[in-house]
Structures are given as C-alpha cells and as structure tokens.
Amino acid sequence: MGAIIYQFKKMSWSEIVLLISLMLMAAFLFLPILFIFNHAFKPFSELFNYPPTFIVRQPTFQNFNDLIMKTSAGAVPFTRYVFNSLIVVVCTVFAVIFTSLLAAYVLSKHKFYFKSLVMGVIMLSLMYAPETVGIPRYLIISWLDINNTYFGHILPFVASPVAVFLMKQFIDQIPNDLIEAAKIDGATELRIFVKLVLPLAFPAVATIAIITIQAVWGDTQASTLFMQDETMKTLPYYISTLASAGTGGNTIAGQGIAAAAGLLMFLPNLIIFLLFQKRMMETMVHSGVK
C-alpha cells in the first residue's frame, strides 16, 4: 500500500488524470461482474424492486439454496453437474499440458523430418474455432462410440494449437547449451524433459492451465452435441438452460438463481487467474508470432 501512495506522489497531473479516467473505464467494464456478485445475493423481494437496484441491501444465500433445491427435485441433482464439470476440467487440463508440453519441447529443441510442416499446420490452426466444424466432430465422436462418456468431453479439447504454440515460444528461451550439457552428463531425453524442461517451462504450463480451464469450464458444445444423457452434461450447460428458461415467464425469479450459478462459474476462473497472473504475463511476453 505504501508503495502505491508513494507512486501517487510521484505522478504528474496528466498521469493522475489518465489514471482516474482509466479507473473509471475499468470500473465500467467491471460492472457485469459486480452485477453478478450483487444479484446472486439478492433476496427475492429485491429482485422485483422498482426502480431496479444494483447493490444488494440484505444479502442472503437464498439463491444458492434455490439453485441446489430446484435441481434436487429434478432428475439430475445439481451436484452431478458440478461433479461432471470438475472431472472434465481436471482431466482435460492435465491432458492438454502433457500433450502440449511434449509436442512443444520436440518442436522447439529437436530436429526431425516434417518439422516445418507440423509447425506450419499448427500456425494455420491457431485460428481454428471448434464451433465451425461441430457436425463432423459429432460424427467422429459417434464413430468412436464415446458419446455419453467422459472421453467425449475430454478428447476433443486435448489438441490445442494455441497451447502448443505458446509453450514452444516459451521453451525456445531455454538455452540449447543447458540441454546439451545435460546430455553430456548422460541424462536421457525423458530425464531432461522431466528434470529440466518441465520446471523451466512452468510459467507457460500455468498459462496453458488458465486458458484451458477457461475454455473447458465454460464450454457447452460438448454437452449439447456429444452428450444425450442428462447425467453426463456439465454445469455451464445446466446454467444455459436456466438462462434460456428466463426468457419465458419467470425472467426475474430465474435471474437470481442464474446469477448465483454464474458466480459459481466465475469464481474458479478468477481464483486460478489471480494465483498465476504473474506467470501468465511472463508467458505472454513470448507470445509473439515470429
């Protein structure tokens, strides 16, 4: 805190004006998140208020209660969606880190046939958006017969060109001499990978974890297309049904529950981002496409 106050004293007038306007801008962009926080804790009466209020006056956990109660009455309990989401996210993150790190290490430090071809394809597929080819993906999932299994959730996300790219750029910074030295000392490739590359690439690993968690934790495509069994669907899918039900009669009544669910969706992302923010910025410095 003292450091910040010291910074203020050092700033010129134009910098202070800039800071204040940026703060206002940031606050404005932050509004939706404040809204979710407040809305999730509003009691029923405040949701119906006119004029509408922004800040919650008497916070309750009623909405969270409703969220859990509402679904326990249905066919699939709320906890099942949460459980599915957690399993899928944890498995996917580890799978993505594992495959991307291996691939990135090889692409960065090894020489082999077709390397430039593989790299070219990865660069091209940076712009790949899975949403555009939902249909063939659906067919492939059906042929592999992994509908309604966790594999159907996880496998489509494992190959992530962005993850490999970021990882490769980061591993490029590790000096070749270091790896050569380890080789001379008799370390096997696997040992080099585990003892040397893995620790040194940790910021990139953290970044990829963040990106993957954000993508998978919020994904509805897999649940909508690949899962027909209601017990295999994930939390964001459930929330999207809440939100679309909101356009019917009970817009406002559903809003409180949806906001509570939205908050549950957001918090893990925020916590993980805050934990790894520094690592992420370290990685993004090397994100350039050269």
């Binding site: 910040i4 939706p32 981002f273």
Partner: peptide, 30 residues
C-alpha cells in the same frame, strides 16, 4: 500507469472475458 497499479486495472478489464458468455447471459438479459 505505474507498475503497481497496472495489474489491478488490467485485471478489471480482463475479468469479463474470464466469466465467459454463459454466465454473463443473465447480466445482459437484466
């Protein structure tokens, strides 16, 4: 901005993209 304040402002601006579309639907609808 000075480095100490930069991270906070950046976080506030980056946050909405973290929430993801689904959770924010309720915000836009309201």
């Amino acid at each position: 901005l000075p480095k100490s304040i930069r991270d906070i402002v950046a976080l506030a601006i980056y946050a909405p993209s973290m929430v993801g579309g689904i959770a924010l639907t309720v915000v836009w609808q309201a």
